[in-house]
């Protein structure tokens, strides 16, 4: 009797869990499906769940001359911003984790507080500076801005990873006469590789999906995927097939990365407060 009730209860939980999950995921699933329908199938009523798949929409997206350019822009911005952010934040996180001083806590909280600056509050000066330095609508300009906005996150995340490395291991290196440079490159970096990889991944994801600066600082030349998709807003929005194909291509890699690295992302996104 009690066992039956428990089984009934767990069935209800499973049912609710699955219905909610499918409902939330449905738009993504539908986008994926629509990308294989072709334009006519995409707007058929009633909507089709079963159909003969076609790559027509993907072919059309690839044929638009700027698709590849946009993808390379996105890769350039994401990789460039991430590499530079790591170059700045690895030494900073090392200093705060292994050579903490009186001001370390204050510095970390100040870095967090720079994230509070709303991007739109500084839209005007950043736009004008970019224009006057010829960085407007360039991959370099957008990568720089993304690097600045992500720097507090990468410093924090690396700091929480570095703090988990036992000091005696670093000390052992010192005893053997390693300089600080050798200590960092030969001892710390190999030990911290998983943490650095997670940090780089989070930075890549944030840059890849960043929309505000992408829409405001780029146009035809340096537009990344986030801005490219916005160009489907009108009047091309009614080409559901192409919109879905382009969106699937833009979203798929990040979805996969996100699924793989959920745990590490939680730590980075919450500044180490939730693990």
């Amino acid at each position: 009797m009690a066992g039956q009730r428990a089984r009934g209860k767990s069935l209800v939980i499973a049912a609710v869990g699955w219905v909610v999950a499918i409902w939330i995921f449905f738009p993504i699933f539908w986008m994926f499906l629509t990308s294989f329908k072709g334009e006519a199938g995409a707007i058929a009523t009633p909507p089709r769940l079963f159909f003969v798949p076609t790559l027509e929409s993907y072919h059309e997206v690839f044929q638009r001359g700027n698709y590849w350019r946009v993808t390379f822009n996105t890769l350039g911005v994401s990789i460039g911003a991430t590499v530079v952010a790591l170059l700045f934040s690895i030494p900073a996180a090392y200093a705060m984790a292994f050579l903490p001083g009186k001001r370390t806590r204050g510095t970390l909280l100040w870095m967090l507080s720079t994230r509070m600056l709303p991007p739109v509050g500084v839209l005007v000066p950043i736009y004008l500076i970019a224009r006057n330095t010829h960085l407007l609508d360039t991959v370099t300009g957008l990568a720089l801005v993304d690097m600045f906005t992500n720097l507090p996150i990468t410093v924090w995340m690396l700091y929480t990873f570095f703090r988990e490395i036992p000091v005696p291991i670093l000390e052992a290196g010192r005893m053997d006469g390693a300089s600080r440079w050798q200590e960092i490159t030969r001892v710390l970096l190999p030990l911290a590789t998983p943490g650095i990889a997670s940090t780089a991944l989070l930075s890549m994801i944030l840059c890849w999906n960043e929309a505000f600066w992408s829409l405001n600082l780029t146009s035809s030349n340096a537009a990344p995927l986030a801005a490219f998709i916005a160009s489907f807003s009108s009047p091309e929005g009614l080409f559901f097939g192409k919109l879905s194909a382009a969106s699937t291509l833009a979203v798929a890699p990040i979805l996969v990365f996100g699924w793989i690295s959920q745990k590490q992302l939680v730590r980075g996104l919450t500044f180490g407060a939730v693990k």
Binding site: I24, W30, N209, A226, A230, V251, G258, W259, Q262
Partner: peptide, 16 residues
Amino acid sequence: LVISPFFVMPTVSALL
């Protein structure tokens, strides 16, 4: 499935 929408870029979410 539930956490997936968070990884979708804002312009895609909006147009979807």
